[in-house]
Design a protein around this nucleic acid. Structure first.
Length: 296
DNA sequence: GCCGGTCAAGGTCTT
DNA sequence: AAGACCTTGACCGGC
């Protein structure tokens, strides 16, 4: 088991997702910003290794506007050795890595242009991991997309678009159950048609499910991961008390996390804490998992 | 320096 | 039809 947090480390004085306005785009600005982002990423990874946080989600903004038409800069060539160096560090320390394109990546949109842009974004994020020479257990997680008033047709479009993706993207792409539209069962249907592994989100599952108890849901998701995908990845969160249903808590609720770990019943997986205070909650999660004998 | 409006991108739900 | 919300930090212009 590895535990981690997404993108931002609030204890460090740097960010790996600095960007700029599209209007200020220039080759120089892009290279300068990207260099700073990768330098900060190295700092974050070192912090993570020092604190036994061995699962990390890299920011989508490492290379600002990389998938935008405005960007003709050969950042791949420019940062080749930097990326290889970071990749070796990840490999040497046994870090598990993911990336999570945001809400604008929608593979099943009825609008071809949106699908094209989405694929470009996936290709960019995949390239970052490819250039780092990460194993196929480093993943790119997306949601099912929209429903557009006809879920079977929408799922069919996802399946058809998936089949057309470049091989390297397919090797890394995983689908995550969401809290309103695509349940675990929907993801399982898509998995059966495509082979795509399911990244399990416990909190989304609490919000939207078909009655599967937590352990059963975990087991169903786990069996969609093949040998070369690595073990199951999951996002962990819980409800923010007194807030709208589906709102993430801003700090880990330790009792709930303990309860959740009991549901694993020996299942091995990597846990990403999708909680606002980032590494602080992740560190608490590490100590709880240690207490319970799930982590050394 | 600090503040607050704004930022590439989508979809769903409410009014 | 238009606006809010999701979720979010950081940019950037205006003071």
């Amino acid at each position: 088991m590895k535990i981690g947090y997404p993108c931002i480390n609030e204890s460090l004085p740097c960010t790996s997702s600095s960007t700029f306005r599209l209007a200020s785009f220039s080759e120089e600005r892009l290279l300068e910003t990207t260099a700073r982002n990768f330098a900060c990423l190295e700092n974050i990874l070192e912090y993570n290794v020092a604190h036994n946080l061995l699962f990390f989600r890299m920011s989508s903004d490492l290379v600002p506007f990389a998938s935008h038409k405005i960007c003709t800069v050969d950042w791949q060539m420019h940062f080749k050795s930097t990326l290889e160096k970071i990749g070796r560090y990840i490999q040497n320390h046994g870090l598990r890595i993911s990336m999570h394109p945001d809400q604008f990546v929608v593979l099943n949109s009825p609008k071809p242009e949106i699908v094209e842009n989405s694929v470009r974004e996936l290709v960019y994020q995949c390239e970052v991991m490819d250039l780092m020479q990460l194993e196929s257990s480093a993943k790119l997680q997306i949601h099912g997309g929209g429903v557009y008033g006809d879920k079977p047709a929408a799922m069919q479009r996802f399946i058809e678009t998936y089949a057309l993706l470049p091989e390297n993207v397919k090797n890394r792409l995983v689908i995550e159950n969401d809290d309103r539209l695509y349940s675990l069962q929907d993801c399982l249907f898509i998995h059966e048609q495509t082979g795509i592994p399911i990244l399990f989100d416990n909190f989304h599952h609490e919000c939207l499910n078909n009655g599967e108890p937590m352990h059963e849901a975990l087991a169903l998701a786990a069996q969609t991961w093949q040998e070369n995908d690595g073990i199951l990845m999951m996002d962990y969160s819980s409800q923010a008390l007194g807030e709208r249903k589906g709102k993430h808590t801003d700090q880990i609720v330790e009792a709930l996390f303990r309860e959740f770990l009991l549901e694993l019943r020996g299942l091995d997986l990597d846990i990403m804490l999708e909680i606002k205070n980032k590494e602080v909650s992740a560190l608490k999660a590490v100590s709880i998992a240690r207490e319970m004998g799930l982590l050394v």
